[in-house]
């Protein structure tokens, strides 16, 4: 695009982000502060993920962008069009064909492969933020590995509801050290973080933090012996592809209580339907 550098960001900004990314993979789960820049899209709409993608993307990459698991949601369409415009890269909806996948709120159902990079858009990177609003305090808690309050919070849920009431952005511990927010993915996706063959990068633009999980890294979801971590399940199968292993979106079909359940991952669902037909 005329007047803008390849992938929009100037080279100095990319270098700053690249240096921060190397620190992030060296200290898995630690939130590295970085000099986040304004992007031509609103904060909260994926500017952190976009800055990371812009800093790693090359001319021979194949980019996939999903939001809620789907390639065709408006924000995914908008971000994909942005990178087509400013970087001229090839884009795809096919998970295995992508070298870089930017995502909001989901990890694809199709298992990721070595060499792939998944870039998460993160709204609030601090897993302790809703327990302790002050950045100065939470920074100290991470430094001292003081994570008791997080377990207390989860346990209060159990006392009140009989269950841990966190269903997305469910906190994890990375390589036995840092408690980390995996971004608002459903806890259904948490097991995919553990020993993932792909590199996982997380970018929070407004909060100016980035973090990473290298491939093959231990990632445990916080839980209790008497209340082990569990993921969502559905009685139904996907109404379109009949999968009983994917995360299902509920779709309201009429105003008389009619509803159906379909895969949130559109590429996975379409691929299965291609195979089935």
């Amino acid at each position: 695009m005329n007047g803008y550098n390849f992938a929009y960001l100037d080279e100095q900004t990319k270098r700053m982000i690249r240096r921060a990314l190397l620190k992030a993979v060296a200290i898995p789960g630690y939130q590295v502060p970085f000099g986040g820049r304004e992007m031509p899209m609103p904060y909260g709409w994926g500017t952190g993920g976009m800055q990371l993608t812009a800093s790693i993307l090359g001319a021979d990459d194949v980019l996939k962008v999903i939001d809620q698991g789907a390639d065709d949601t408006t924000n995914a369409v908008s971000i994909r069009a942005f990178f087509e415009r400013v970087a001229g890269v090839e884009t795809t909806t096919v998970t295995p064909a992508a070298s870089v996948i930017q995502t909001r709120h989901r990890i694809p159902e199709t298992p990721l492969e070595p060499g792939q990079i998944l870039v998460f858009q993160v709204p609030i990177p601090e897993p302790l933020r809703f327990i302790e609003p002050s950045e100065q305090e939470t920074r100290l808690m991470h430094a001292l590995e003081e994570y008791g309050v997080m377990h207390v919070k989860l346990y209060e849920d159990i006392a009140r509801h009989g269950h841990i009431a966190t269903t997305y952005a469910y906190p994890v511990k990375v390589d036995g050290r840092y408690v980390m927010d995996p971004s608002p993915i459903p806890k259904f996706d948490n097991p995919k973080l553990d020993m993932s063959p792909a590199l996982l990068l997380f970018g929070a633009g407004r909060e100016k933090r980035l973090y990473a999980i290298p491939p093959h890294t231990r990632v445990e979801s916080l839980d209790f012996e008497d209340h082990p971590f569990e993921i969502q399940r559905w009685e139904q199968r996907c109404a379109l592809c009949a999968s009983d292993k994917s995360f299902l979106d509920e779709v309201i079909t009429d105003d008389a209580g009619g509803r159906m359940f379909v895969c949130s991952d559109t590429d996975y669902c379409l691929t299965r339907r291609g195979e089935l037909s």
């Binding site: 690249r18 990314l21 190397l22 993979v25 060296a26 790693i56 060499g115 590199l199 990473a212 290298p214 491939p215 093959h216």
Partner: peptide, 8 residues
């Protein structure tokens, strides 16, 4: 290449 080296 550096990112891959550092993450693997």
């Amino acid at each position: 290449q550096l990112l891959t080296a550092m993450s693997e």
